[in-house]
Design a protein around this nucleic acid. Structure first.
Lengths: 351, 351
DNA sequence: CTTTGTCACTCTGGACGTTAGAGTGCTAAA
DNA sequence: TTTAGCACTCTAACGTCCAGAGTGACAAAG
């Protein structure tokens, strides 16, 4: 790693950093290349445009800004934004009123699924960008309770409740009808054996014990475990994240080429990639920011993602955040995401 | 109603109709105004451009076509499209292969919710436009079965199964904990009293009997009915339609102004308006088509909607269809929507 | 009476040139 | 180290021009 590539505060003069900050703030406001004259007025320090130009040339050499063409001003590069966010940004605290508003919105319902959805909508509404909340993976959740209900002709409705209060249904097709008490007995057994364990373990143990039961020709047991296996099966991964306010992104000229927008929207409906991106950073604490294609996903070029994990019982179960143009008001968005994550965590704890 | 306004086949000569058809077919293919020269070649009949121009002038007087400016060709008006669809269009039958493909896709799952979703995706995939399927309204469905499960601290999970096999969950907050057998008894009573009746009636009867029970201070009964009331309550109307492949619409230059597209997409997330539009025509039989803002919704300007109702037990429960640019291949889309509706109806019958 | 050829006319869209404005880099002076 | 000045460059907006497509009208032909 050559030292010239390794940009940190020490390589960039105090003053240059100040200008970089002013430039980015201006660029975020206007979305247009910033020239030396403008910056001279903006930056507060009483310096002439010519001086600024010299500094800008340095910043350009360092790869922190670039100009679209000879006679345009400078725009920040991804690296420039990175530095801005990591060490230049001054984050505002959220007003008590706004915090209260977030809390009220989230607590309107006590159904976790509804809460996640309104968190997403909230994020999109407050920031005027797209909100995103990942749904806790079933495999990570803990098993709380399972129940079976007899339906007509060889079908059984299985209901699975996880420890954070989420309810999952699944219809099982069985080879014969079961009576209610048979099913209750089965459920009882399963609840007794597996309650409180995390889904992954449950799955494993169900499979193990199923094999054992089969060896012993224990038909009742085999049936019970077969049913449980089908329910616990995580392959059917349902909707894994909730995205709201996508259309807000159509307002940003930065992304306005229909082609790009379409790819982005397709990614939103597909969800897989987005989810994968967020999953990678579940273990990080606090707010995380990806700028442009830093994340490795081409299609996020020109976008930034601001996310934070949320917890249930001190265990990270999902991520939430905001997707918008790289040119976004980080100083507002960061605390919003942060606070929302905290409030959501608190709200989910009471389940 | 002045007779000059009342355009029907009789007002338009056989030949003019032929040209109108040719013009619209051409316009659907190319999306550009069609000139007399082009049309002369296209129409088959050996006529000179000058003749065509005369006919076009007539069609323009009747309001069936119009020209964007003096030296462009003609494009069909909404009225023109209407006539085309009502009396000029020759609908192809779907190939057996395609029908089979639709059937296979729909029958992949037996869960009604999944089936509706894949119907929507199917429609969008096959037509390269947006697919839409309304979810049967709970109030129209019939009550089949209700069950209650005790959860922790004063909460009860209610499960409602409708006659088409849909499962609805709802968590009730009660003022005390109930034992399993209490709940079973309650469910038994409710199932016994209301099974098979349609949701609307059930709701009404629950309210009536609730009053009666209160008068008689019958606490058990009151509790049972209060619970039932909360579950049956239709106010919480859930997701009412499934839309797929919205992004396909971004490909159509006709709608390509970002502003319009945004309004359309917002309507898709909002859903209310779309739903209302479709609901109006549940009683019609077979495929229905709305062209542009015929429907009364400004935002559908430039779009057409092709829909058909689907049934469960010979009762219309929902609509499905396709939204795309007015310039769409109706001869293909119509049978696709038609067949999909029929197959979906058949598939839902086996629940 | 219908069809056709013709001609003058109109409108659009692309190519081209011009210009004003913004911003730069460089150099020499403070 | 900072500044002023100057030559240079690039863009975006505007106007002009022209070819192409298409029309309407009219008179001639069938």
């Amino acid at each position: 790693m050559s030292s010239s590539k390794n940009i940190s505060e020490s390589n960039v003069s105090e003053r240059a950093q100040h200008f970089l900050k002013a430039l980015i703030e201006r660029y975020i406001r206007d979305g247009q290349p910033v020239g030396s004259r403008t910056l001279a007025k903006d930056a507060g320090l009483e310096l002439s445009p010519a001086t600024i130009r010299n500094v800008m040339a340095d910043l350009e050499d360092l790869g922190l800004v670039s100009s679209p063409h000879t006679s345009a001003g400078r725009i920040p590069t991804v690296t420039g934004f990175r530095m801005f966010i990591d060490s230049l940004l001054t984050v505002e605290d959220l007003k008590a009123r706004e915090v209260e508003r977030i809390r009220n919105t989230l607590l309107q319902s006590s159904d976790p699924a509804v809460m996640l959805a309104s968190a997403s909508q909230l994020l999109s509404g407050v920031t005027q960008m797209a909100g995103i909340v990942t749904v806790p993976r079933r495999e990570r959740a803990s098993f709380r309770q399972i129940e079976f209900l007899p339906l007509s002709n060889h079908r059984v409705l299985a209901i699975l409740v996880t420890d954070c209060g989420e309810v999952h249904n699944r219809i099982l097709h069985t080879h014969r009808d079961f009576t209610r008490s048979e099913l209750d007995q089965t459920a009882n057994f399963l609840n007794h054996s597996f309650s409180g364990q995390d889904m992954h373990t449950v799955r494993q143990r169900v499979l193990d014990e199923l094999n054992e039961a089969r060896e012993h020709f224990d038909q009742t047991m085999t049936q019970a475990l077969e049913m449980a296996g089908e329910v616990v099966d995580v392959s059917e991964s349902e909707e894994d994240c909730v995205i709201a306010g996508q259309t807000n992104l159509m307002e940003f000229a930065d992304l306005a080429s229909l082609g790009r927008l379409r790819k982005l929207f397709d990614a939103f409906t597909e969800k897989r990639e987005i989810l994968h991106l967020l999953d990678q950073f579940q273990h990080a604490q606090g707010v995380q920011i990806f700028i442009g294609d830093e994340s490795g996903y081409q299609l996020l070029n020109g976008c930034s993602v601001v996310t934070a994990p949320y917890q249930v019982d001190d265990q990270v179960v999902g991520m939430l955040g905001v997707i918008g143009p790289t040119r976004m008001h980080y100083e507002r968005v960061i605390p919003i995401v942060d606070v929302t994550a905290k409030i959501l965590s608190a709200a989910l704890k009471n389940q």
